[in-house]
Write a protein that binds this DNA or RNA. Structure first.
Length: 643
RNA sequence: GCCGUUGUAGCUCAGUGGUAGAGCACUUCCUUGGUAAGGAAGAGGUCGAGAGUUCAAUUCUCUUCAACGGCUCCA
């Protein structure tokens, strides 16, 4: 007999060789039907695998993350079975579960998959699932495995086998399909009831663009149709929040073929948001002791050689222009220009920390396939700033920058993000990273301490640092699930030396400053793209391109509407009158749909009483008040940047 | 850059080997109406661009540009 410990601490005895599924059955048939996999001694196992020693057991169902991913991984195998049945000779690479569903990479030879093919595969999968085939696990020796795939002529699985140790190799089979797989899998194909193959894409073998491109099919499955329908509905909802769609509806920016891809043309509405953001940043930075600078859009090749950017990032820069025998590049970053400003005058420790900021437009040649609405563009306003300080000052300065981030996030109500502490990889010192082992450890420790001190939750990621130092990135997700770095705060102990920067310290000796690169609002393009999705297009009043729309009941009240308009304009409130000869219902409907935060209905009653009837977007009628009260209220709201 | 899909009116989308249609938006007229669509008329497109096949191409083929979904990349 063996002792099985359940999550609630209960211990029960079973015959050795019992499976999790059998244990579930001993509890209830209903539970057994729901079991997809099991966590045995904290390791995810097949529910059908026999347990021979004392163990802790956690039965996994659809409600568990591990249950879901097992379900999806098994679905990937089911898809592979369907694909093999439809297109014999196909070779498979890997087919993991992902956050939402699964994919399988395959080599289909010359065959191309279309939408119609996906439907055919779906149909076949449903047919195979109904056979309720069991997922069978088989331990196999390496030589047998090699023989199997050599006979099959499958170089991909043979490649996988190379890195596996004998005695640790398993095959899984269901129906007519056998795959090299670590598992685990669900007991049978029966629970895979609702299937949707979402898209087909190319994916480089082993993720290396030098390798052959395989066909990747993405899909998702559910234990019932209802959940699939709900999932698809959720995707539709997300699409409505997509910043690209919202920006079009709000006339914020356009991309134009003649201008070039990735080069946004900010229209008046969008420009207002850019400027409001910059106004916030300027005020915040002024309070934090920054000075503003302005630098050119281009610079000579020599500066980017000094900075080290050219050898490393040439591919990401627009090609140079030649003039008078000199090569000039469009700037892809502001840092070198700022370093030159630091270097322009002799600096003493009394001048430090030296903080400068600029929202310079930078140009980066992002690969065409990488462009993504406003989130990834070729012209971007960096919310850039550089701090030059001594080692002693570094901690406080870095901390202040971090606090600035948190202040911004509070204003915007941003709470779904991940702070990522990006560290170096010691084995890559001198190659990917500046060879300063001690400085790395020292600054990494300081950066970590800043996060701890400010109580900021974070994750640590090795081998993600900049070449010149560790950094903190703020990661966010677009509504369609893509991850982006929103903001970044970086330590740089390399550029100071590269640019020969120095200040005179207290001992009258030259000393190289540490540099902090910071962009708490990232780029204004990406930040606005993010805000659009964050607010679902309903900007807070201070950011809204149009803040108030006045809706006269009829033409008769236009003069009064203009009087209200003038009162608001006197306080620089962005206001417009809907002067069309339309009924009030239509004006309201269109104003609501345009997402203007305040609507003022004005008619005879209001005119006689000197009032405006206020309507808040999404909330409806909130009652009448005197013009002056409304002006006072909205001016305060704008000033406080309340959301 | 690579794989795949898509490009028709300002927007959302139908459609066809014989030079195009709807709804919304727009313009004009009627209507002057108190909290989410009043009515009528009108205007608007070299069917992404270039080439080929054809008597004839928006439609078929090729090239190219762009967007979209991924991959790779992301200072």
């Amino acid at each position: 007999m063996i002792k099985i410990t359940f999550p609630d601490g209960a211990i029960r005895e079973y015959e050795a060789g019992v499976s999790a599924l059998e244990i579930a059955k001993s509890i209830s048939e209903g539970l057994a039907r729901k079991v997809l996999a099991a966590k045995v001694n904290n390791e995810v196992w097949d529910a059908t695998r026999t347990i021979t020693t004392d163990a802790t057991l956690n039965l996994l169902t659809w409600d568990d993350t591990d249950g879901k991913s097992t379900f999806w991984h098994s679905s990937a195998h089911l898809m592979a079975e369907a694909v093999e049945a439809l297109y014999p000779g196909v070779k498979f690479w890997v087919g993991p579960a992902i956050d939402r569903g699964f994919y399988y990479d395959m080599d289909l030879g010359d065959r191309k998959l279309s939408e119609a093919d996906l439907e055919a595969i779906e149909k076949k999968m449903a047919e195979l699932a109904k056979q309720q085939n069991t997922y069978l696990r088989k331990e196999i020796s390496k030589s047998e495995a090699i023989q199997y795939f050599t006979e099959k002529g499958d170089e991909y699985k043979l490649d996988l086998l190379q890195n596996l140790e004998d005695g640790n190799i398993t095959f899984y089979s269901q129906g007519n399909f056998t795959d090299l797989c670590r598992g685990p899998h669900i007991p049978t194909t029966a629970p895979i009831k609702a299937i949707k193959l979402t898209n087909v894409a190319g994916a480089y073998w082993k993720g290396d663009e030098k390798n052959k491109q395989l066909t990747r099919v993405y899909g998702i499955t559910f234990p019932n149709q209802k959940e699939l329908d709900e999932y698809l509905a959720l995707l539709e909802e997300a699409k409505k929040r997509d910043h690209r769609k919202l920006a079009k509806e709000l006339s914020l920016y356009i991309f134009d073929d003649d201008t070039g891809s990735g080069l946004p043309l900010w229209m008046p509405n969008g420009a207002i948001i850019v400027e409001e953001l910059e106004k916030l940043a300027k005020e915040t930075e002024e309070d934090a002791g920054y000075k503003r600078v302005v630098t050119p859009h281009i610079a000579k090749e020599s500066m980017y050689l000094t900075s080290g950017h050219l050898p490393y990032y040439k591919d990401s820069m627009f090609p140079p222009m030649e003039m008078d025998g000199e090569r000039y590049y469009l700037k892809a970053m502001n840092c070198p220009h700022h370093h030159k400003i630091f270097d322009a005058e002799p600096r003493s420790y009394r001048d430090l920390p030296f903080r400068i900021a600029e929202y310079g437009t930078c140009y980066r040649y992002e690969q065409s396939g990488e462009l993504f609405g406003l989130m990834r563009v070729r012209m971007l306003h960096m919310n850039d700033g550089h701090l030059y300080c001594s080692k002693e000052q570094f901690f406080e300065e870095f901390k202040a920058v971090n606090e600035m981030y948190l202040k911004y996030f509070k204003i915007f109500g941003i709470d779904k993000y991940v702070m990522r502490l990006s560290l170096h990889a010691p084995e890559k010192l001198g190659q990917k990273y500046v060879n300063e082992p001690e400085l790395w450890l020292e600054t990494e420790a300081m950066v970590r301490q800043v996060l701890i001190d400010t109580g900021t939750p974070f994750i640590e990621v090795p081998d993600e640092a900049a070449f010149y130092g560790p950094k903190i990135d703020v990661q966010i997700y677009s509504v369609i699930g893509r991850e982006f770095t929103l903001a970044t705060n970086q330590v740089d102990f390399s550029s100071g030396k590269r640019f020969n920067l120095s200040f005179t310290n207290k001992n009258n000796e030259p000393e190289t400053p540490l540099i902090i690169h910071r962009a708490p609002l990232g780029t204004h393009e990406r930040f606005i793209g993010f805000l659009l999705e964050h607010y679902a297009g309903k900007f807070p009043v201070w950011l809204s391109p149009l803040q108030v729309k006045i809706l006269p009941i009829s033409d008769k009240f236009l003069p009064y509407a203009q009087q209200v308009e003038a009162a608001l304009k006197a306080h620089r409130v962005r206001v417009a009158i809907d002067d069309r000869s339309e009924k009030i219902g239509k004006k309201i409907r269109e104003a609501e749909l345009s997402r203007v935060p305040y609507m003022l209905v004005v008619g005879e009653k209001d005119m006689n009483e000197g009032n405006v009837s206020v309507r808040r977007q999404g909330q409806g009628d909130v009652g009448a008040m005197p013009i002056a009260s409304f002006v006072q209220q909205i001016v305060t709201e704008i000033k406080e940047r309340s959301s």
